[in-house]
Amino acid sequence: MDFIQEGFTQAYTLLRSLDPATYSAISSTLRASGLAMAASLLLGIPLGYLLGYFDFRFKKQIRIIVDTLLALPTVFIGLVIYALLSRNGPFGEAGLLFTIPGIAIGQTLLSLPIIIALTATAVEAADRNLHITLMSLGANSRKIAASTLWEVRLGILAAAVTATGRVLTEVGISLMVGGNIKWHTRTITTAIALETSKGEFGMGIALGLVLLLIALTVNISLAGLRRRI
């Protein structure tokens, strides 16, 4: 299988020669994933805290639903978001179909359950004495929430790493909602799918390596963040 070796040399050439199509795909990938991660962290961390910290009716049932959503297939999310964003769909007016924000909406749906479930688990696993300590040092509810989340920051970071991995590498949503439009919504993963269908296996491998490189960069910076906090 010489196309694997070919993939390595081609990956190097692509990055080295600043191939505009490749960089456009890298940019689309990062923009969609970045937006999705920002949105899902902003929504998911507070929701995860609520789910992990408080006791309320149907908590167990909600937990099961969230855990089930972890298994959402990306193609299915893509299909649902397509149906919602299609010009004939309920949110068609927004004109988000075949755009990066459209992909980001789908990817947010993909990563939100991960953030919520793992944040809730981290908050639940926090020491019972943490709560007593915070209260007895004079914290109010808001401070308790903030300090508890800060205590479990490594768990939340792990959630972010897991979700980033899924979002960066998914192909179903990008393909269905983004449409794989060259220079616009073609991400690295949809480009790999396209190159493979064209028989350009070497190119597919090259793009896969580029994606791995991005994941590596993201994880190195997150690991750096982990050491600092």
């Binding site: 020491d127 943490l130 007593i132 800060w150």
Partner: peptide
């Protein structure tokens, strides 16, 4: 009472 009473629990907990 929040700022007046404080408890040192049996198992000491230090924040990370």
């Amino acid at each position: 009472v929040r700022f007046k009473v404080t408890l040192l629990a049996q198992e000491p907990y230090l924040m990370r």
